Lab assay of single mutants.
Amino acid sequence: GATAVSEWTERKTADGKTYYYNNRTLESTWEKPQELK
């Protein structure tokens, strides 16, 4: 079946920190989402 992984995108802030952005829920998080573990 379909997985939720594609909803999350790994992004970088202007100062180079990595965060994760969810295209479906429009939420962002510093922690790696469960779906990516």
Rank of each mutant, 00 (worst) to 15 (best):
R24E: 08
K37S: 14
G16A: 02
Y21R: 03
S6D: 11
A4V: 15
T25D: 03
T29I: 08
L36E: 06
T3M: 12
E31I: 14
Q34E: 15
P33L: 02
Q34G: 10
T25W: 01
E35A: 11
T13K: 03
N23D: 10
A14I: 10
R24F: 14
T25V: 01
A2F: 14
N23W: 11
V5C: 07
L26T: 10
E7S: 05
L36C: 07
T9W: 06
R24I: 15
E31Y: 10
D15H: 06
G16T: 00
G1F: 13
Y19V: 03
N22Y: 00
E10D: 03
A14L: 10
G16L: 02
L26G: 15
E27S: 05
P33H: 02
R11A: 08
T29R: 11
A2C: 05
N22G: 00
T9N: 07
A4F: 06
T29K: 08
P33I: 02
K37W: 15
Q34L: 13
K37Q: 15
T13D: 14
E10H: 03
E7R: 03
E35T: 07
E10R: 04
G16S: 02
T18G: 02
E35N: 09
S28Y: 12
E35I: 07
R24M: 11
A2W: 11
E27V: 09
E10G: 02
W30V: 06
T9K: 06
K17T: 09
N22R: 00
R11H: 12
E27A: 06
Y21D: 02
V5L: 12
E27H: 05
E10P: 07
T9V: 15
T29A: 08
E27M: 08
E10S: 04
T9L: 07
Q34W: 14
Y19I: 05
T3H: 13
E31N: 09
L26M: 15
N23E: 15
E27G: 04
Q34C: 09
Y20V: 00
K32T: 06
N23C: 08
D15S: 10
R24D: 08
G16K: 02
G1D: 12
K37G: 15
K37L: 15
T18R: 05
G16R: 01
T25E: 02
A2Q: 13
D15R: 04
Y20L: 01
K17I: 09
Y21G: 01
T3L: 12
R11I: 12
A14H: 10
S28V: 15
S6W: 09
L26I: 02
W8I: 01
W30K: 04
A14N: 09
T13S: 09
A4P: 13
P33Q: 02
S28Q: 11
R11Q: 09
D15V: 03
T18A: 05
N23T: 15
K17Y: 09
W30A: 05
S6V: 09
T18D: 03
K32H: 04
E35W: 05
K12G: 04
G1R: 01
A2V: 14
E31H: 09
R24S: 11
T13I: 02
T29L: 07
S6Y: 09
Y19E: 05
G1T: 12
T25R: 01
E10M: 07
N23L: 12
E31K: 08
W8T: 01
D15F: 06
E10W: 03
L36K: 04
K32M: 12
N22I: 00
T25Q: 01
K12W: 09
V5G: 15
T3N: 14
E35R: 04
N22Q: 00
K12V: 14
N23S: 11
T13R: 03
L26D: 12
R11D: 02
E35K: 05
W8K: 00
G16V: 00
E27P: 00
G16I: 00
E7G: 07
L36Q: 06
W30E: 06
A14K: 11
